[in-house]
C-alpha cells in the first residue's frame, strides 16, 4: 500500500535537505568546535582590543620630538619615568583612586535600600515608579546630566536661588572635588541598583520571615541574613562603580572647574592638547594596570560576586 502523501509532508523534506546541507557544511565531527564558533565574535572583539593595547604599548615606549612632532624611532622608558616622577601625575592618580573609592562606598549605601524596596515592595505602583526613576537617567547622557547640575548648583542656580529666599548669600557649590564626586554618585546610582537587584531577588523572602518569627529584630535580620546573602551583588556593583568612576572623564571635566582632573582627563590632555601620544599611551596603560590590580584585589578578597563565572559550587 502506498503511504499517504501527508505522512511525509513537504516541509519535512525541506528540513531534511537543510539538515543534509548543514551536515555537509559542518560535519558532526566538528561538533566540539561549536562553542568556539559561538565565541568567535567575542574573541574577535577581544583580539582587536588586545591589538589596540599592543599598539598603545608600542607608542608608550616612544617619545615626542617637538622639532618634528613625530614619535621617536627608538624605544625608551622615558615616558614611564615621567609618569612616576612628576608630581602632577601622582596628584591626579591619588585624586582619581580616592574619588573612585568614596563614590563606590556612597553609591552602594544609597543603592542598597533603593534596590531592596524595589525588589520587596508589594505595591506594583511603587515598583513601577522606582523602575522608571531608575531607567530615566539612562536616556539622558552623562554630559547632559552634568550640565543639568551646572544649572541647578550654579551661583544663579535653583539651589542658590532657594537659599537666597531665606537670606543666604550665594555659595560656590560647583567646581570643586565634592561637586565631581556628587555628580559621579548620581551617575553611578542606577548601575549599582541594577547590579544589586538580582542578588536581592535571589534571597528567599522566607528566610527574613523566619528570622523575624524567631524573634530577630529587623536590624539583626539585615545584618545576619540580608547583608551576607547580598554580598555577590554588593561586590559586582562595587566593581562596576569603582572601575567606571576611576576612568570617568566628563564629570571631572565639567563639574571640576578645570582643577579636579582625573586620570582620563590627563590622558586626553596628552593626546589632544600637547600631541604627546607616547605619554598619553603610558598613562592609559598605567590606568588599565591600576584598574586591573584593583579588580584583582577585590576578586581575591571578596570573590567575583555576581560577576563570578562557571557553575555554582555545590
Amino acid at each position: 500500500m502506498r503511504a499517504a502523501k501527508s505522512a511525509y509532508p513537504l516541509r519535512w523534506r525541506i528540513m531534511d535537505a537543510m539538515e543534509a546541507f548543514a551536515a555537509f557544511i559542518w560535519p558532526a565531527r566538528f561538533g566540539r568546535a561549536i562553542p568556539w564558533l559561538m565565541l568567535a565574535p567575542a574573541l574577535l572583539l577581544v583580539g582587536l582590543l588586545v591589538l589596540g593595547l599592543i599598539q598603545i604599548g608600542d607608542a608608550s615606549l616612544r617619545t615626542l620630538d617637538t622639532t618634528t612632532f613625530l614619535m621617536s624611532e627608538s624605544y625608551t622608558f622615558a615616558n614611564y619615568q615621567r609618569a612616576f616622577s612628576e608630581s602632577l601625575f601622582a596628584a591626579i592618580a591619588w585624586r582619581s583612586l580616592l574619588g573612585a573609592l568614596i563614590v563606590t562606598v556612597i553609591t552602594l549605601i544609597l543603592a542598597f535600600p533603593y534596590a531592596y524596596v524595589m525588589v520587596r515592595t508589594t505595591s506594583s505602583i511603587t515598583r513601577k515608579l522606582l523602575l522608571i526613576a531608575l531607567f530615566l537617567p539612562f536616556f539622558i547622557g552623562q554630559v547632559v546630566r552634568a550640565y543639568g547640575w551646572l544649572i541647578i548648583l550654579g551661583n544663579q542656580g535653583m539651589v542658590n536661588e532657594a537659599l537666597g529666599l531665606v537670606g543666604v548669600a550665594p555659595i560656590r557649590l560647583l567646581y570643586n572635588y565634592w561637586a565631581v564626586l556628587f555628580g559621579l554618585v548620581q551617575y553611578m546610582l542606577p548601575f549599582a541598583v541594577l547590579m544589586l537587584a538580582p542578588a536581592l531577588m535571589a534571597i528567599p523572602e522566607e528566610l527574613e520571615a523566619a528570622a523575624g518569627s524567631l524573634g530577630a529584630h529587623w536590624v539583626a535580620t539585615f545584618r545576619h541574613i540580608v547583608l551576607p546573602l547580598a554580598r555577590p551583588g554588593l561586590v559586582g556593583a562595587g566593581l562596576v562603580v569603582v572601575t567606571l568612576s576611576l576612568t570617568d572623564f566628563a564629570m571631572p571635566a565639567i563639574l571640576g572647574g578645570g582643577s579636579q582632573d582625573f586620570i582620563a582627563n590627563a590622558i586626553y590632555d596628552q593626546f589632544f592638547r600637547t600631541s604627546d601620544q607616547g605619554l598619553g599611551s603610558t598613562l592609559a596603560l598605567l590606568l588599565v594596570a591600576v584598574g586591573s590590580l584593583l579588580v584583582g584585589l577585590v576578586f581575591t578578597v571578596f570573590g567575583a560576586g555576581t560577576l563570578a563565572m562557571g557553575r555554582a559550587r555545590r
Binding site: 615626542l64 612632532f69 602632577l88 585624586r95 582632573d261 600637547t274
Partner: peptide, 18 residues
C-alpha cells in the same frame, strides 16, 4: 611656543592640580 608648550602646560597643570 610649540617647542616648549608641553613643558609649560605640564608646569601650569602641576601648580593648578597640586
Amino acid at each position: 611656543q610649540v617647542e616648549n608648550e608641553s613643558e609649560w602646560f605640564s608646569k601650569f597643570k602641576a601648580i593648578m592640580q597640586g
